[in-house]
Amino acid sequence: MIATGAPPRDPRRLVIVGQEPVASLAAAIGAAARGTDRVRVVPLTPDRIADFDAGQLASEPPDSTDAFAAIGLSALNYARYDLWAKLRLAGYRCAPLVHPAAQVDASASLGDNVLVGPMAAVEPDAALGPGSILNAGAIVGSSARIGAWCWLARGTIVGAGCAVGDHVVLGSGVELADHTIFPGPGEIDVPGAYRGSYPAGTFRAPEFPDPVRLYGVAGAARR
């Protein structure tokens, strides 16, 4: 069963803390579900992310307000994770945001602070870990698992049964074939089709013709 469009109007307010373009997208989704008057954006410049103090949100207490950490893929999504942690420690619920034009199957599960952008699709039994962001048109196939704090760029395709680890960035034009395993942390920013099983800590970027690999973190570079 596919749930399309906005959920029933949510009575709680939503405060979005972060940067463009994620903040605007999150605000648009929030406004569609809760009304424009119930959504506020607290912009952060890049040099202020680390300094953010949830005390700034005192006028919107967590008992009546949800929050959303709207930072992009900076530092393999660790910047968004750090901001989310501050919001959670301050007591805010960071519910997932689903664009009205996205399609999320009712059997799929979405973690805290997940964002599903316009025309993105999450197929049956797929799961998105906390903080992961699916940009416009990204598709997560049935039974695929996306870890926490991932970033799927516009049009990324993750095939059925794939397993994507935590803190993974998949760039535009990347297509993971069904049942591909890509543990985190890592990044693929070279368009193309990928299949098979990758070691943890694999990084692909246009400036490196071969994969860059991580030494020393548990699970990386071990066979």
């Binding site: 530092a75 393999l76 660790y78 803190h167 860059v212 991580l214 030494y215 020393g216 973190v217």
Partner: peptide, 26 residues
């Protein structure tokens, strides 16, 4: 080979730090 110095406390973002620095270096 780009390495961080010894960690004195948890630094989960270590791979992200290295990846960002490595791309600048390249």
């Amino acid at each position: 080979t780009m390495a961080l110095g010894r960690r004195t406390k948890r630094l989960p973002a270590a791979p992200a730090i290295l990846w960002s620095q490595l791309k600048s270096e390249k």
